[in-house]
Design a protein around this nucleic acid. Sequence first.
RNA 1: CGGGGCGUGGCGCAGUCCGGUAGCGCACUUGGCUGGGGGUCAAGUGGUCGCUGGUUCAAAUCCAGUCGCCCCGACCA
Length: 490
Amino acid sequence: MSKGVTSQKDNYATWYTDVIIKSGLADYGPVKGTMVIRPYGYELWENIKLALDKMLKDSGHVNAYFPLFIPKSFFASEAKHVEGFAKECAVVTHHRLRTTDDGQSVEVDPESKLEEEVIVRPTSETIIWSMYKKWIQSYRDLPLLINQWANVVRWEMRTRLFLRTTEFLWQEGHTAHETDEEAEKETLKILEIYRNLAEDYLAMPVLTGVKSDSEKFAGAEKTYSIEAMMGDKKALQAGTSHNLGQNFAKAFGVTFQSRENKEDFVYATSWGVSTRLVGGVVMVHGDDKGLVLPPKIAPIQVIVIPIAKNDEDKIIIMNQINDIITQCAEKGIRIKVDDSNNSPGFKFNEWELKGVPIRLEIGLRDVSNKEVVLARRDIVDKQSVKLNQAVKTITNLLDEIQKNILHKAADFRDKNTVCVESYKEFKNVISNNGGFVRCGWDGTVETEIAIKNETKATIRCIPFNSNPKDLKCIFSGEDAMYEVIFAKAY
RNA sequence: CGGGGCGUGGCGCAGUCCGGUAGCGCACUUGGCUGGGGGUCAAGUGGUCGCUGGUUCAAAUCCAGUCGCCCCGACCA
């Protein structure tokens, strides 16, 4: 266990916070619920962002930026959508401060009260659709495929680093289409991109499926999500893709002239993933030593630790290793030397805490053997390799680690996913082992709520590969309408 | 908003019950010896004890108020 990090077994929530703070991913901001994403955490986010941005652009989407502030009046436009966010909106009411009479502090200048209050976006559907109304007239203007990288604010009661902060970073895509089919296709295409991002880059296996009505996005016809299992067996909704139907078009009066020369409301989608993904990476792969970062997104993939008794040794060692560092850098491997004055043992622990996939140790012993030592973070393993094999081995190892942690996470999830046939069994699994429970559901909200109230478990999704045939509802005993995944969730 | 905990050098804490010189560990600075799993010795730097008011000769400590944070719940990505 790493010094100062609570073990997962003792308290998972505290472990999570400890790891994030001590590894330097993030820190608490001065305003309750806010978070400073520190350089190490931000680079991790940037790497995720870079991968996703490319996939979105490759599939025909373009980036744009819409304002942070939304007129309050926009929120009256779409009742259902507003209902979902009204309780957690930050509202700007004034635009000026003044010095207090005693000259000691500042206060809001009542003279500066705004005519119309302004909402800090909790999501951008309303402002984007107000603009789409201006931009869309004909089917020739469609599809409109815009993505935005932005910050949003949701004034949550309880927050947790990365998983739920008052302000967070995300991307939100907002698309407009001619037909329902096209919108549905887009919604699913994005879900598939999210699945790729999670599995291929974050090494985070996910279930894909559709949300139950009560869990779907405010104002959506259908919400699809990717759901991952964390190290404590709870579920994390890691990304959502919504088919909004014509709801927003109707709310904002966005019509277009169709190919048949008829006026119709456009069909919409919206979708997003956020810095929450970073929290997911921490919880899916992390252990008591700290982070375990997937090589593809790790800010540092190889950390070099020279073990030298004095400055002369250090020079000899660096001469030996410089070539490898250059070759790695040329191949795009993110490699860094820790030549600080800390002891080797300290560095080992430090970089394990930070989750660097490969550690390269080199001392005089290795220099004379023309070797380096490679240690991997995902398993306990150290090997000596010849200098001329080092770059190749590192390349292979990075690949292997990426695969291994994905498999490990998938195994863990599968081991903790069970099918149950009685409610007694259901409750037993949820309260004792935890994890995902696969079972029949009669499709009623009443059942969903009753189960949630009694067990805290919610329907994570109706998986694409599910089949309700011959299943009974776990709660009511009626014929099942869906086969679903239940779990306690973040 | 309910329950719990906590505010004392950068971080973690002791001291508060029973008022009397503000302390410990880590970190930090300088130098020496070290270096293959969180090294070591020496010398240093750093604090209006969350804030406001009260009691007192005297308040980190007692009293009243207030602000803030963390954890657990309800709500949520």
